[in-house]
């Protein structure tokens, strides 16, 4: 009998844990959204978060985009040459960057840098009773720590994605004109002619969603960090892993919504 009930109990227990986690995250997101529209607003903390999340992520996102754009140009050229379609390199690089690679790689790079940093910072604050101290000083930790970070990430990610798009296309341009023999003027004309406004804006919307995910996961796991160095370490890992998976899942869903015909 136990051979039958034990696996069922394990499935039930896992399902309940997963549902409880989804519920806790849902409540956490609800609290963030409710605090977003209610004063007080911590402008200084928001400004600091913008610098930390947006400005300081620029080098990482820029370099990622530059190399990705270059590699994409090489891949499309090599693949396209099999059926004499090398000329599509500029347009495919541009569309690939702005629709998919810019937002997804930008989101993943920021997840690695920012979600980890947020979870480690807030987790350490929790372990050293700084979160309790905030409460005793009549300051809501959700409002003071979470809302500025989530808002800053949601607003700065689209800008990072836009910068990444430009640098990525430029990476493709550099490789296309220096190694693949494209004429610079023709390359730019092909890039601009085939790119539509919605290609760019859909990528920016994705960037905003990914920014929200990154900061929310960092804050959630930091706020729920276990005790000691091990607890903070686990919170940091969980923040990066969950943000990365959610970004990829959200990207699939958004791509389906935006581009399915």
């Amino acid at each position: 009998m136990i051979l039958i009930t034990a696996p069922l109990a394990a499935i039930g227990s896992t399902t309940l844990s997963a549902l409880a986690l989804i519920g806790r995250m849902g409540i956490f997101v609800g609290q963030i959204l409710s605090h977003l529209v209610r004063p007080p607003f911590y402008v200084r903390e928001f400004g600091q978060a913008l610098v930390q999340i947006g400005w300081l992520s620029l080098p990482v996102v820029g370099l990622t985009a530059l190399f990705t754009g270059g590699a994409l140009a090489l891949q499309i050229y090599a693949g396209g040459s099999r059926f004499n379609a090398e000329a599509v390199v500029p347009s495919i690089v541009a569309i690939g960057m702005v629709r998919e690679l810019g937002p997804v790689l930008g989101g993943l790079m920021v997840a690695g840098r920012v979600a980890a940093a947020i979870a480690a910072e807030i987790g350490t604050m929790k372990v050293t009773e700084q979160i309790d101290a905030l409460t005793t000083l009549s300051t809501n930790p959700m409002k003071y720590l979470t809302v500025p970070r989530v808002l800053a990430a949601t607003l700065s990610l689209p800008i990072l994605v836009l910068v990444g798009d430009v640098i990525g296309i430029y990476g493709g341009f550099l490789v296309g004109t220096s190694r693949l023999g494209f004429n610079p003027v023709t390359y730019m004309e092909n890039t601009v002619d085939f790119l539509e406004v919605w290609d760019v804006t859909s990528g920016l919307v994705k960037g905003a969603v990914f920014g929200f995910i990154v900061a929310t996961m960092g804050c959630y796991h930091g706020m729920n960090s276990g005790k000691g160095a091990q607890g903070v370490g686990r919170a940091t890992t969980n923040a990066v892993v969950s943000a990365s998976i959610l970004i990829l899942a959200a990207n699939y869903l958004l791509t389906g919504v935006f581009f399915s015909t």
């Binding site: 604050m125 009773e129 700084q130 309790d132 101290a133 005793t136 000083l137 009549s138």
Partner: peptide, 29 residues
């Protein structure tokens, strides 16, 4: 909460703020 003050075991000072900003935390917001 405005009626309470608390000294925590480890101090629980905010690392990102200077000493005076820690002390005046409640008076700045």
């Amino acid at each position: 909460l405005a009626r309470f003050g608390m000294l925590f075991q480890g101090g629980a000072l905010f690392d990102s703020l200077t000493v005076w900003q820690n002390v005046a935390f409640r008076l700045l917001r």
